[in-house]
Amino acid sequence: MFENLTDRLERSFKILKGEGKITEINVAETVKDIRKALIEADVNYKVAKSFTDDIKRKALGMNVLTAVKPGQLMVKLVHDELAALMGGKAEDIDLSGNPSVILIAGLQGSGKTTFSAKLANYLKSKKGKHPMLVAGDVYRPAAIEQLKVLGEQINVPVFTIPDSKDPVSIAKDAIKEAKKNGQDVVIIDTAGRLAIDEEMMKEVESIKKAVSPNEILFVVDSMTGQDAVNTAKEFNDRLDFNGVVLTKLDGDTRGGAALSIRAVVDKPIKFVSTGEKMETLDVFHPDRMADRILGM
């Protein structure tokens, strides 16, 4: 949608240098370009603003303007800061429980059910675990059937209580069942819910309270726009989740939501989902994400 950021900044610095009076104001102009690029990539408006304010300070401190290729240096600075902000303490998921309980939550259609099955598949094939999937979405038409079909594909048992409308007791019973059968990880899929849906947010809080999960993962569609911060904040306030899963990254979205969420809730992005097939799950690479947001 816009030209390569490096080229653009290089060009504007060239113009500035030609004028022979490179000042703080000039840097501010370039920083504006960067801010615009971030917002176009769906980074939240406020997050982009405070991020670029930091960049401006750092750029001036680095004497970016006396560099031979100031545009390149500036882009590298932005890129490295982005990666640092989204990366850092990338912890593995906690599998120390017996069984380990993983609770999955997020907005409608974000990719929770698909991710639940992918995670089960990953833990089974890569970590030698014996997972169980739990159908905790009792609302969406055919949600249980969907999880069953996926469970069958990957050969992982799916726990359900037919006709039950109570996700809390489904989750509790599932854990008992897992203990009985020697399953060491329990992954609880839940219904999609809006952060402002009080009743549904209370429900997921109750599930958390009932099963004390080792890990709560917030699943978010990487195409999400400005609202990502509101949603992530509300889910985090309610659930204090451990990590984020970014889905549908096989698309061509810039994925600025990743930065926004990290900035607002300061929780690590643990997995990325890149397709509808069961094997399309990856760990998060902050470096790649920074490239993507900048369109590089």
Binding site: E40, G109, D221, M223, G225, D227, T231, G251, T253, R254
Partner: peptide
């Protein structure tokens, strides 16, 4: 289109 989608909706 999902109302919470950002600029990717254009594409």
């Amino acid at each position: 289109l999902d109302g919470s989608t950002g600029q990717n909706a254009f594409m």
